[in-house]
């Protein structure tokens, strides 16, 4: 039997190596190496402006690094076509932002279904059933046909979580998903996110300012001055 820890290192969900990024004069990332183990919850902490969001964007393939490369489930993002990149984002990555990420014209159910419009792993009926299932799991079984404007901030984030999970991604990325929510609501949303991440066997990489949240993570990564200053389990 192989040591599970070694297996995790061998097959990480995300491997970022030597990531550098500058915006004009400002060098935001100065060579970041990061490994996110499959199926685990990794929290990124750090002061405002330390480059957490920038790193997450690069991992999601939504931002180009100046140097270094990212592998998501062993696939190297650099040099991918728009189409292949979209494929990776659809199949392997689920992403949750701070807020206001739902399409205002669509119902909760349709918002969850958005990432499946060009996917063909299941039939339309199966996708629908799965979307309803997920909305049930985030506690919105009774709000399927509500538009975002009729949902509270916490409910909107739950919809976003369900949407991020619809294609059973290997990795969930979250950039301060509760940053816009009050303490109690935020905690409830986090419970949903962390629990669902675990039940679906999804690795979770979350940027957070909240050390209580970080305390629940398998790994915590600290960013400082464009580098990872500290990582601990």
């Amino acid at each position: 039997m192989t040591d599970p820890a070694i297996a995790l290192i061998d097959k990480p969900a995300i491997r970022a190596e030597g990531i550098r990024k500058r915006y004009g004069e400002l060098e935001v990332l100065k060579g970041v190496d990061l490994i996110v183990a499959a199926g685990q919850f990794t929290a990124i902490m750090g002061k405002s402006g330390s480059g957490k969001s920038t790193l997450l964007g690069i991992i999601a393939g939504l931002e180009q690094p100046d140097a270094g490369h990212v592998l998501v489930m062993g696939q190297k993002l650099a040099g991918m076509s728009d189409r292949d990149m979209a494929d990776v984002r659809r199949r392997s990555i689920g992403i949750v932002f701070q807020g206001f990420s739902l399409i205002p014209s669509l119902t909760a159910l349709d918002n969850v279904l958005l990432p499946t419009f060009f996917a063909a792993q299941m039939t339309a009926v199966e996708y629908r059933r799965r979307a309803m299932d997920l909305l049930n799991q985030v506690g919105l079984g009774a709000r399927l046909n509500y538009r975002p404007s009729a949902l509270s901030g916490g409910e909107q984030q739950r919809v976003a979580i369900a949407r991020a999970l619809i294609n059973s991604p290997s990795v969930l990325l979250a950039d301060e998903p509760t940053g816009n929510l009050d303490q109690a609501t935020g905690a409830a949303v986090l419970d949903v996110l962390i629990d669902l991440g675990r039940t679906h066997g999804t690795s979770l990489l979350m940027v957070t300012h909240d050390s209580d949240v970080a305390a629940r993570a398998d790994h915590v990564v600290e960013m400082k001055d464009g580098r990872i200053s500290h990582a601990h389990a």
Partner: peptide, 16 residues
């Protein structure tokens, strides 16, 4: 624009 960025983030291509 933000809506279109969200669509890109959840796996739509720019063409789509």
């Amino acid at each position: 624009r933000r809506e279109m960025a969200v669509l890109q983030a959840i796996g739509w291509t720019w063409r789509q």
